[in-house]
């Protein structure tokens, strides 16, 4: 089986029509579905949060068969993810896409579990500590995208599970958990 970095690729990655946006509706729907799964799976294992449409994204080309997705196809597959709520365009011109391989509420649950497991129920942490501290190492939270983290924390704040306080700079933005 072919691999991309450490990511295993399915066999059909070598199927040339996989890289051409199919015009027949039924076939295209199936193709889009398969692409969505592969993109989410890849982003999850490689901890990718942002896909730039105009930048090289390893998944969007297969040098072995000399095929790559054109812009239209990339946008079609990412738009399908956006419709599913598994991605968001970061700008109006659809140049960058934020991939939510966990939905925001799933992220919030993961953070809560993290807090419980580490006994941080009443403590104070900076955002940077959560993303890159010792405690989060080995979890999905480690190295997660700041935008996604902030949105998950906001959701928890609205539920009264924590309070976000602003510091003098983004570096000392922090949260106080009150689970």
């Amino acid at each position: 089986m072919q691999t991309l970095g450490e990511h295993k690729l399915p066999h059909f990655f070598n199927y040339p029509p996989y890289f051409t946006l199919q015009p027949v509706r039924e076939t295209r729907e199936k193709q889009i579905q398969v692409w969505k799964e592969l993109i989410l799976d890849y982003c999850r294992t490689q901890k990718v949060f942002i896909i730039g449409l105009e930048q090289d994204f390893p998944l969007f080309s297969n040098p072995a068969i000399e095929r790559s997705l054109n812009h239209e196809a990339r946008e079609a597959f990412l738009s399908a993810l956006v419709l599913d709520g598994r991605a968001e365009w970061m700008d109006k011109s659809h140049r960058q896409c934020l991939i939510l391989w966990h939905r925001i509420k799933d992220w919030a649950d993961i953070i809560l579990r993290f807090v419980n497991e580490n006994g941080l129920e009443d403590s104070v942490m900076t955002i940077e500590e959560i993303r890159s501290g010792i405690e989060s190492r080995g979890t999905d939270i480690h190295g997660m995208d700041r935008t996604v983290l902030m949105r998950a924390l906001k959701l928890l704040e609205n539920k009264g599970k924590l309070a976000i306080f602003k510091g003098t700079s983004t570096d000392d933005e922090g949260v106080k958990f009150s689970v």
Binding site: F12, Y15, P17, F19, T20, K30, Q31, E37, E66
Partner: peptide
């Protein structure tokens, strides 16, 4: 299924219907 590339316009047998979307591997 079609394959449009610099090599030209080619047709392949459609295998999409046999791929399990829940387990792409």
């Amino acid at each position: 299924c079609r394959d449009v590339s610099p090599d030209g316009f080619r047709f392949y047998i459609n295998i999409f219907q046999d791929i399990d979307p829940n387990d792409v591997y």
